[in-house]
Design a binder for these strands. Structure first.
Lengths: 159, 159
DNA sequence: ATTGAAAAATTATCAGG
DNA sequence: CCTGATAATTTTTCAAT
């Protein structure tokens, strides 16, 4: 349950079938999973343990309805900066990590340097994030894209 | 375990604590969760069932390491269209839904109409998606943003 | 590496306050 | 709505193949 495999793990068809089932519903019993993937309890149990140990399975979690917990508003923020020293990036990263409304952040290739995905209660909460961010690190240009409708959202990777 | 609550659910502090624990680690036992949130097994169990029934908890799943399953490459695709009839949007939506490499898709306010997040094995797989998409629906302008580094990625909502 | 069984732990139910 | 006990199910271990 520990390693972060930077490289592709060796997996056979049975492993993939198990991952499909677990991604679909991690609350299923071993018996159910074993039946669906055409195997039996012990091998499935051993393989799940291996997939966790190898870091293929990172965590087991529940997915919440954002609206039900008051996080109706989703922004994608495109960020350009003129600063590229280590110190700047470190402070920027720390700011993103410390803010729970930041669900995702990527460093990009090309003209736009970063994209950040936010879930907040309303536009005011976005502005609070924005003000706090520019107070902490110097930013050249920001474009906020406001989601009007979530057409698709899944955590399921096509294994 | 059924309703999709479009509106914010009534929840007290204990419910929130339970959601924090489940989001952090859904494989914990009821006893562990009960101890951490300062309650006991039965109330925690009843509340979890209610949170599922109310649709606050949508699903229980495992989060995989994308690199470990060979999905090293992440793109955000910004899409502009000139078509805005119902038929076009329906075909576009169907195309996104049917493609497992599309993990997220939003309709946006402003100049850019849609943003789509993709996980693929390499740039060739992105191009295959792009070619298939423009074969199915007419698109005015596409900008693909390639992620060089995932700085943050979480499914945990700050409840 | 899988089978089948047995032990340990956990989840789900329920009577009573 | 909570406490504590009980029943049902599931997870985990293990000897044998």
């Amino acid at each position: 349950m520990r390693e972060r495999s930077e490289t592709k793990a060796r997996m056979d068809l049975l492993d993939r079938k198990i991952l499909i089932e677990l991604q679909d519903d991690a609350s299923q019993s071993l018996d159910d999973i074993a039946r669906k993937v055409g195997s039996s309890k012990t091998p499935v149990w051993n393989r799940i343990r291996k997939l966790k140990d190898a870091g293929v399975i990172r965590r087991q979690t529940v997915v919440l309805d954002p609206a039900a917990v008051g996080l109706d508003t989703c922004f994608f923020v495109l960020i350009r900066t003129s600063e590229h020293e280590a110190g700047w990036q470190q402070r920027f990263l720390a700011a993103l990590q410390s803010r729970p409304e930041v669900l995702e952040a990527h460093r990009l290739a090309g003209e736009i340097d970063y994209i950040v995905k936010l879930r907040v209660s309303d536009a005011r909460a976005y502005d609070a994030f924005y003000q706090a961010l520019i107070a902490e690190v110097k930013i050249y240009n920001v474009t906020a894209l406001l989601s009007m409708e979530e057409l698709k959202s899944t955590t399921i990777l096509p294994v």
